[in-house]
Nucleic acid binder design. Structure first.
Length: 463
DNA sequence: AAAAAAG
C-alpha cells in the first residue's frame, strides 16, 4: 500500500494547510506506515533515525488529534536527549501547527535569565505540547506545579541515545507521574536489549515499525583519509579549498578539540563557530542560528549535533576523528544529503582509530574508500584492514540486526525548508521558543509562508 | 572511551 498524499490520511484541514505551507508533498515510507497507526491510537516502537521524516511521522497525527481536542491542558510530552533537538522539534511543531490552535514549548536547561519563569508560565498555562530534555523537566516537576493527570501522548525520541546518556531513571520517574491510559510512542535508532526492556515497561501492545536504521542515505558520497594526527589540520585546510563548500560540519569526539579546530580555521582565514556542551546555551543557540542562516560556512561540533539536527544545504561532513560508536558515524554523516539531496562525508583516520573502521564498515555494509593523502603532506600511515586492536574490551561484538532494508529513498520533499528561504531570518528565535505568545503564532525562521490570504497573519516581529 | 544533561 502506498499513500501518495497527506490528504489521504484525513487530517484536519488546518493541519493540511500547514503541511502544504511547509512544502511537504507526499509522505515518506515511515510516515505512510506510522501515521495511520498513531491516528488509530496504537502504541508504537519504531526503529528509525531522523532524516527519514520520523519527526513529522509522529507530529502530524498528534497535531491532528490535538486540533480536535480542547486546549486547556498539556496533552503531549516529547522527551529528547539534547537541547538543540528540543528546540528544533518545537520549531517544527510551530510550522505544522501554524493554522492549528496548538501551543508548544521547548523545556530545557542552560539558559541564563528568565527561561525558567517563561517555562513555568507555559507549563502552568497548559501548553498543548511540551518538548523537553529530561533533567529540566524533572526540575519543574519537583516544584509541584506540573500537571500530568490529563496527559494523553508520550513520545520518546532518540530513546537509545537517552538511555546511553543515563536517562533511564529520569524517564521512569516521569512515566510514573503519567496516566496509565495514554498513547506511548518510542523511537530509537537501534534496538538493544535495554530499549526492549524499556518498551516492555511503558508500551502496551505496540505496533512495531522498522526502517533502514543502519544504512546512510544513498546520496552521501563517503570517503576517508588515513593520516597522522599532525596531518589532519593541513589536510582539512586543503580540502576546504578544494571542495565547493556550501555548509560544512566538522565533527570531533572531544570537546577540547572543538576550540582547537575553530582557532585553526580562523587562523586560516575561515569564519567558523564551535558548538559543544561546555559553551553557554546562549553561545550554542547563537552558533546554531548563525549556521542555519548561513552567516558562516563551517560549524565545528561534538556529537551533541550528531543526532537529528536538520540544517539545509549541508554539503560536507568532516569526521575529524573516527566516532567511538559506529552508530554515531551514521548519525553524523546523516546531517548531509537530507531531503534527497547529495552530500559528501570525509573521515580522517589516524593509526589509533583504524580499529574502529571495521565496525563502521560492517554497520554500513560497505567499505569506506581510503583516498591517498596528497604527496605534499608527506608519508601517511599504512591502513591495516581490521586495524590494530586495543588490548581488550573493544572487541565486543555488536550484533547488527538483519532487518535493515535499503535506506528509504527519502522522498524528494520531506524537507519543509527547501520550499522557501525566509528572508526575515534574523527573527529572534531563542526567546520566542520560551515565550507563551498569546494567540497568533510568532513567526520563526522556518515558518511556513501562508498561502491563503484569509489565514491569520502573525504580528510583525520586533527586532 | 567520549559526550550530553539539572544546578
Amino acid at each position: 500500500m502506498s499513500v501518495e498524499t497527506f490528504e489521504a490520511f484525513n487530517l484536519h484541514q488546518d493541519l493540511l494547510a500547514g503541511i502544504q505551507a511547509m512544502g511537504y508533498k507526499s509522505p515518506t515510507p515511515i510516515q505512510q506506515q506510522a501515521i495511520p497507526e498513531i491516528l488509530a491510537n496504537k502504541d508504537m516502537i519504531a526503529c528509525a533515525q531522523t532524516g527519514t521524516g520520523k519527526t513529522a511521522a509522529y507530529l502530524l497525527p498528534l497535531l491532528d488529534k490535538i486540533s480536535h481536542a480542547s486546549h486547556d491542558h498539556t496533552s503531549t510530552l516529547i522527551l529528547v536527549p539534547t537541547r538543540e533537538l528540543a528546540k528544533q522539534i518545537d520549531e517544527q511543531i510551530e510550522g505544522f501547527a501554524y493554522f492549528v490552535s496548538a501551543q508548544s514549548i521547548a523545556i530545557y536547561g542552560g539558559n541564563k535569565g528568565d527561561s525558567w519563569d517563561a517555562q513555568k508560565k507555559a507549563i502552568t498555562s497548559g501548553a498543548d505540547i511540551i518538548v523537553a530534555t529530561p533533567g529540566r523537566f524533572i526540575a519543574h516537576m519537583n516544584m509541584g506545579y506540573v500537571k500530568l493527570d490529563k496527559l494523553e501522548y508520550l513520545i520518546l525520541d532518540e530513546a537509545d541515545k537517552m538511555l546511553d546518556m543515563g536517562f533511564m531513571d529520569d524517564i521512569m520517574r516521569i512515566v510514573r507521574h503519567l496516566p496509565q491510559k495514554r498513547q506511548t510512542l518510542l523511537f530509537s535508532a537501534t534496538m538493544p536489549g535495554k530499549i526492549r526492556e524499556l518498551a516492555r515497561k511503558i508500551l502496551h501492545n505496540p505496533t512495531e515499525i522498522s526502517l533502514a536504521v543502519s544504512k546512510p542515505a544513498e546520496g552521501i558520497d563517503q570517503r576517508s583519509y588515513v593520516v597522522y594526527d599532525k596531518q589532519k589540520l593541513p589536510l582539512l585546510q586543503h580540502l576546504i579549498q578544494e571542495l565547493e563548500v556550501q555548509s560544512m560540519i566538522i565533527f570531533t569526539s572531544r570537546k577540547s578539540a572543538v576550540n582547537d579546530i575553530v582557532k585553526a580555521l580562523r587562523k586560516m582565514g575561515h569564519t567558523a563557530e564551535g558548538i559543544m556542551s561546555d559553551r553557554t546555551q546562549e553561545e550554542r543557540e547563537a552558533a546554531m542560528q548563525g549556521f542555519r542562516n548561513k552567516q558562516f560556512k563551517i560549524l565545528v561540533a561534538t556529537d551533541i549535533l550528531s543526532r537529528g539536527i536538520d540544517v539545509d544545504n549541508i554539503s560536507h561532513i568532516i569526521n575529524f576523528d573516527v566516532p567511538h560508536d559506529a552508530e554515531d558515524y551514521v548519525h553524523r554523516i546523516g546531517r548531509t544529503a537530507r531531503a534527497a539531496t547529495t552530500g559528501t562525508a570525509i573521515t580522517f583516520i589516524n593509526e589509533k582509530e583504524q580499529y574502529r573502521i571495521s565496525r563502521i564498515e560492517k554497520l554500513i555494509e560497505k567499505e569506506l574508500p581510503k583516498l591517498p593523502v596528497p604527496e605534499a603532506f608527506g608519508p601517511a600511515p599504512e591502513y591495516k584492514s581490521g586495524g590494530a586492536k586495543p588490548a581488550s574490551g573493544e572487541n565486543r561484538n555488536r550484533n547488527r540486526s538483519k532487518n535493515s532494508k535499503s535506506s528509504s529513498s527519502n522522498s524528494s520533499n520531506s524537507n519543509p525548508k527547501t520550499s522557501g528561504n525566509n528572508p526575515s531570518s534574523s527573527t529572534e528565535r531563542s526567546s520566542s521558543s520560551t515565550e507563551r505568545p498569546k494567540k497568533p503564532f510568532r513567526p520563526r525562521n522556518n515558518k511556513p509562508k501562508p498561502q491563503d490570504s484569509t489565514a491569520v497573519q502573525p504580528p510583525a516581529t520586533e527586532s
